[in-house]
């Protein structure tokens, strides 16, 4: 009986990176939307939408993973 440490570690690494990455990007988006004053508001709003688009792409990728199995 051998424990598949490689698979375990891969799951761990992928989960950690994708979770922190996704939550981080989404938080950036939320922060960008909450800036309403000043000249940089439009810029940060655009940045926020880019962040949300990236998250939506990740969700689509997740659904693709479920379906493609």
């Amino acid at each position: 009986m051998s424990i598949d440490w490689h698979a375990l570690f891969t799951v761990f690494a992928v989960t950690l990176l994708s979770t922190v990455g996704l939550v981080g990007v989404f938080t950036l988006g939320v922060v960008g939307l909450s800036r309403r004053e000043g000249g940089a508001a439009a810029l940060s709003r655009t940045g926020a939408y880019v962040c949300f688009a990236a998250c939506a792409a990740a969700v689509a990728w997740g659904i693709y993973l479920i379906v493609s199995k």
Partner: peptide, 23 residues
């Protein structure tokens, strides 16, 4: 809400990563 979002995303990522990698 902020924690709930982090928890739920972590759960989704774990389930997808593990089932996709055969674990």
């Amino acid at each position: 809400p902020q924690q709930g979002f982090a928890a739920q995303t972590g759960a989704a990522a774990t389930i997808l990563a593990s089932s996709h990698l055969g674990f």
